[in-house]
Design a protein around this nucleic acid. Sequence first.
DNA 1: TAGATTGTTAATCGATTAACAATC
DNA 2: TAGATTGTTAATCGATTAACAATC
Lengths: 216, 216
Amino acid sequence: MTPRPSFKIPKIPEMTIRRLSVYTRCLLQLEEDGVKTVSSEELAERFNLNSAQVRKDLAYFGEFGVRGIGYYVSGLKAELQRILGLDREWQVALVGFGNLGSALFNYKGFAHQGFRISVIFDDDPQKAGRTVDGVPILPLRELAQEAKGRNLQIGIVAVPPAAAQAVADRLVAAGIKAILNFAPTRLKVPKDVRLQNVDLSIELETLSFYLAQVSR
Amino acid sequence: MTPRPSFKIPKIPEMTIRRLSVYTRCLLQLEEDGVKTVSSEELAERFNLNSAQVRKDLAYFGEFGVRGIGYYVSGLKAELQRILGLDREWQVALVGFGNLGSALFNYKGFAHQGFRISVIFDDDPQKAGRTVDGVPILPLRELAQEAKGRNLQIGIVAVPPAAAQAVADRLVAAGIKAILNFAPTRLKVPKDVRLQNVDLSIELETLSFYLAQVSR
DNA sequence: TAGATTGTTAATCGATTAACAATC
DNA sequence: TAGATTGTTAATCGATTAACAATC
């Protein structure tokens, strides 16, 4: 419909984004270790990648290197954080506060890079109305108004599979454009909503396949 | 070294394995719904895949279909379960019984397909020595002997990142060949050990990248 | 048999890698 | 300057898709 500028966004491969995330973590470590510059070759070999791939991944977004030198660690780190949107704070809604939900809530890696769980939704009357570490647990019906008030941008679905689609529908209705789903269900969401699935069964079954292969 | 039979194992793409896992779940559902046969076309459109891809994925392992008919749901399900190693029970060691560990332990999807967490390791003296749902929590130093005694095949790493490599080393030393890692660290393991990483940061940052794109 | 759908080959597409001129 | 390493083009590789003969 709306003709987007065709020069920007030249279809970045998903795998490139995932690698940028990996590079960023590595650069954070290097910076901590006091390393000033790093070459694509050095970066690549830490992850068994090809140096050309590293350069190409970065080249989608600009020219960040210096020929003959490599990349300045803190400069590149800052660029990647900006590209990945890690230079700001995202307001996250966690839906479902069972075991998985509370594990995610307590997982410190979250806040770490600017993801702030600012509200939790759970219809269990034992939980709704309480507060954990200053974060309110509310019934799901309050999602829409909270989404506006708190400017929620990311929703995490940590409810049983049977409830997941209904939750996703509500998140979408509340205007949330990015969903991280832990329920082992295929969720249907509109095309402009970005859905990321974490599927434990697939990971385990991949292992199981490998074990079955070698023991055959 | 050992010349493996070159006709078997024609390098199955990882994505094929992951899709087999998805097909299997779908077939379980179809069987429950009383559907007797399904075509590659029907299977494909549920996941926005191409029917040729479905057929090709299956063709790596044999001829399971009937021309003019499609695939018999329960027959194909059984074949895929066998291929994925879901026709047996795998003994799983869960290392780390914090929030994430207990979420994983309580996650019913596990037992569901033959993954049995038969022992938990945690060095916290508050936890070690106790039992949850009949499953013992032991200190990590007992890993090696338990691995033998219980025939452990899969290890789940759910400890803080700083401890993860040490845990992985012990799992490897205990002869475990398949590791599912939840710690946000690159683990180094020997080539014959299959390592599957679940990295929440990457998933979140992929979402963050998308949001940053659209809001730019 | 006619219709449907498989298994498979060949074509296409996209991602990875090698190679190298540009340049710090 | 000489040496190193980038950014980028061209070659390679592998995965997806289209097409169709085989066949239920």
